[in-house]
């Protein structure tokens, strides 16, 4: 691990990224030793390709992808967060791509990391963010016919039916009633 000595820490990695894509970087922040870079989403795949392939950075390991919904707190509303890790440098870096609610699209990075596949699917499932170029963008954890995107901040935590009965339950009861005349119990 000789490379640690020449100091390719998270800050240096963020600087290298800023040098290669000066117009894309919005903000760089550090908290508890972790560096996060906020970027615009337009060239996200190029940036990730650069971080993965650059011989000095080598972010070969994609720890995680997730979405965050900043409803009424931040503009643009959504962020897609990439947590990267470089095995040779033992350095982690966080990239946050801003996605506006009016244009819920971002380029997929499955061509860079095969492991991004399901995490992008989950992000689509939970926030409705579409990943262009994804090979198989379907719902993953929620049922296929589910309405809405559960992890959005405007999605209710509890049912808004109140005392009313759920239509699906009523349907089951009705079917059971109508089956009685055929002797089905």
């Amino acid at each position: 691990m000789g490379r640690l000595e020449i100091g390719m820490g998270p800050k240096e990695a963020a600087e290298a990224l800023a040098k290669a894509f000066p117009s894309e970087i919005k903000e760089t922040a550090e908290f508890q030793g972790q560096v996060s870079v906020t970027v615009s989403k337009d060239r996200i795949r190029d940036m990730m390709r650069f971080l993965h392939d650059d011989p000095a950075l080598e972010f070969h390991f994609l720890s995680d992808i997730c979405g965050v919904d900043y409803l009424d707190k931040k503009e643009p509303r959504f962020e897609v967060v990439y947590n990267l890790f470089s095995l040779p440098n033992k350095t982690s870096l966080r990239i946050k791509a801003q996605v506006a609610a009016e244009d819920l699209k971002i380029d997929s990075v499955v061509s860079v990391w095969a492991g991004a596949n399901w995490r992008e699917r989950e992000c689509f499932d939970m926030f409705g963010i579409r990943f262009s170029g994804h090979p198989d963008l379907r719902r993953l954890l929620m049922p296929e016919d589910w309405d809405g995107y559960p992890l959005c901040k405007d999605y209710p935590l509890q049912s808004d039916l109140g005392d009313k009965e759920w239509q699906g339950y009523k349907d089951v009861i009705d079917t059971a009633e109508s089956n009685k005349k055929y002797g089905v119990r």
């Binding site: 070969h60 390991f61 994609l62 720890s63 095995l87 990391w113 095969a114 492991g115």
Partner: peptide, 9 residues
């Protein structure tokens, strides 16, 4: 090894 890292194992 390389593919395993790429897959996120």
């Amino acid at each position: 090894a390389e593919e395993a890292i790429n897959l996120g194992l």
